[in-house]
């Protein structure tokens, strides 16, 4: 028939087909996969409790109750503070799209002004952690000796308090029954800080007496320093440790070498 049909028994045909299949599925996935929500939110200025209340009743009250006192489907928000609202809504975790073991990071549904209003409203219900001062969410840049020291201290605090869940490089990790600690790259310093003080979902609270605001700032700076660190060794394979390295050795290391061996054993044209 045609050229394609005569080559269907060629030894490379399977490899070509596999590659084609992978390309198509991979391409389709990257096209269809949900794009990362841009969770950037700058410091809000206006705090209009009344406007926040309206927004709350319209968007949140169905789960948290009209007075935010909590219902069967959502916890009470009295005393959770503005930090909690800014984190949950500012990263798109709230409003929750559907019941799940854990609220995933999602597309942010409100603008900065609305989030600030919601936060102001919830903060007015009872005392709780406030949105952090900007001086503590400013990243300490490496360069000077004291800054470097602060970053190194942040690393020590991170390894003792955070790495067990979020992994050594902040790549995230598994918890029980489908819950997980999310990856930390791309999270804004403010949201990191707010997560520490408010303890969202499974995360414990790290109050200011446990980790002082300065310590939190050091942790954040360490994470950002790692994020901006050049990949000295090349491709990081997701910073997942030996599992991804082993996989790479099997698939690519062995794959390439077997490819060479096949070429070596094949008779020349």
């Amino acid at each position: 028939m045609n050229a394609l049909a005569t080559r269907r028994r060629h030894p490379a045909a399977i490899a070509v087909l596999l590659l084609l299949g992978l390309l198509v599925t991979g391409g389709a996935y990257s096209f269809l996969a949900p794009k990362d929500a841009n969770a950037a939110a700058s410091a809000a200025a206006a705090d209009d409790v009344a406007k926040g209340k309206d927004l709350f009743i319209a968007n949140c009250a169905s789960c948290h109750g009209v007075g935010a006192q909590g219902t069967k489907s959502g916890p009470s928000l009295v005393g959770v503070g503005a930090a909690s609202v800014d984190f949950q809504v500012g990263t798109g975790r709230m409003p929750l799209a559907g019941p799940n073991v854990q609220a995933p990071q999602n597309k942010v549904k409100f603008d900065d002004e609305q989030i600030a209003a919601l936060a102001a409203f919830v903060a007015s219900l009872g005392p709780g952690p406030a949105i952090p001062e900007e001086k503590y969410t400013t990243v300490i840049e490496p360069g000077t000796p004291e800054n470097n020291k602060a970053i190194a201290e942040g690393g020590e605090i991170f390894r003792v308090n955070c790495a067990m869940c979020h992994n050594f490089a902040g790549a995230g990790g598994a918890l029980t029954r489908g819950k997980y600690a999310p990856a930390l790259d791309g999270v804004t310093p403010r949201h990191m800080y707010e997560a520490m003080v408010s303890g969202p979902q499974s995360m414990p609270v790290f109050n200011d007496t446990n980790l002082t605001p300065e310590s939190k700032q050091k942790v954040i700076s360490y994470l950002k320093a790692q994020e901006n660190q050049t990949n000295v060794g090349g491709l990081t394979l997701g910073n997942l440790g030996p599992v991804s390295e082993g996989l790479f050795a099997w698939v690519f290391g062995l794959g390439i070498l077997i490819g060479c061996a096949v070429w070596l054993g094949k008779k020349a044209a």
Partner: peptide
């Protein structure tokens, strides 16, 4: 301290 995803190299997996 400890890190999430503590694994040995693959052959000890």
């Amino acid at each position: 301290p400890i890190t999430a995803g503590s694994q040995p190299d693959w052959y000890m997996g």
